[in-house]
């Protein structure tokens, strides 16, 4: 029994190390400046924040973060607004074609993004949004909207029927029911769904890579992927790691803080045994 427990603890430890090590290594690397970068040591002999300073001075990383924040916030707000209404219709009203609509919504969320790239490119250019945040808000809707609709529909369905009926007897129409009865009850669901959609938008790469051109217009993932140093052959690994740490720490914090909510949001969105 004791041996089994030890073996088990070792397995758990192994998984934890495997999960955490790459990020820990990124932190270590980000603290190495100059030639220290090119020695493999577990902790830099002279830890330095030079890389962190550099990404904000030599690179427009502050601007990139702002871009990401704006694009993700806008698309999440827009998606939640559209999705709450749609989720009420899909989750609580019986009408012909509802099953098909849900299927379409799910289908869209499974779309390969390249499949809409040329059409979206045309649309973005036509709307004059190329190299602007608007192009990202527009294109991100393709995955955040189906996701929020789907998850909120499953949440909406769980709300007690009698509550809605009481509101009807009180004279509330569908819009009042959604906005004044259900919405105040969906705070946790909205937070979880919004957070997941935000993370998805924050992490998006393909659209951001395609619809932005200049360093200033880039989002965080594109900036991190394309970050270049003095020469073309020498990637500024220290800065890349510093940038990675900067954008990941808040995410990890949020995720750990909202662990339970996220797990329930994910499973509501994906699996119904």
């Amino acid at each position: 029994m004791g041996l089994r427990r030890i073996a088990f603890a070792l397995v758990v430890l192994g998984i934890v190390v495997w999960a955490v090590f790459p990020f820990a290594w990124a932190i270590v690397t980000s603290l190495k400046a100059g030639s220290a970068l090119f020695t493999v040591e577990a902790w830099p002999s002279q830890p330095s924040l030079a890389n962190y300073a550099a990404i904000f001075k030599e690179q427009p990383f502050g601007r990139n973060i702002l871009n990401s924040l704006m694009a993700a916030s806008a698309v999440v707000a827009l998606s939640l607004g559209l999705a709450v209404l749609a989720a009420y219709a899909l989750g609580r009203v019986r009408f012909r074609g509802r099953g098909l609509l849900l299927f379409v919504v799910l289908g869209v969320s499974m779309f390969p993004q390249v499949a809409v790239l040329s059409g979206l490119f045309e649309l973005v250019r036509w709307l004059g949004l190329y190299n602007r945040i608007g192009s990202l808000v527009l294109s991100y809707l393709i995955f955040t909207l189906p996701f929020t609709v789907w998850v909120l529909t499953t949440f909406m369905r769980e709300l007690p029927k009698e509550l809605e009926e009481a509101a009807m007897v009180d004279g509330a129409g569908p819009f009042v029911i959604v906005t004044r009865v259900f919405l105040p009850l969906m705070g946790p669901a909205l937070a979880a769904t919004g957070l997941l959609a935000f993370i998805a938008a924050w992490n998006e790469f393909l659209f951001a890579l395609t619809f932005t051109l200049t360093d200033d217009a880039r989002t965080v993932p594109v900036a991190i992927a394309l970050m270049s140093g003095a020469s073309q052959y020498e990637l500024p690994w220290g800065q890349i790691m510093a940038a990675s740490v900067v954008v990941t720490v808040p995410l990890i914090g949020l995720v750990l803080l909202f662990q339970r909510r996220i797990v329930s949001g994910l499973t509501a969105g994906a699996v119904k045994g």
Partner: peptide, 28 residues
């Protein structure tokens, strides 16, 4: 364990790719 396992999930794909790219670097 659950908290640790959530970390890779929370990290943006691009960041994961860069982190691993650095870890798999041929020289350093």
């Amino acid at each position: 364990l659950r908290a640790a396992v959530l970390i890779p999930w929370a990290i943006p794909t691009v960041v994961s790719a860069q982190m691993w790219g650095w870890m798999f670097h041929d020289l350093y």
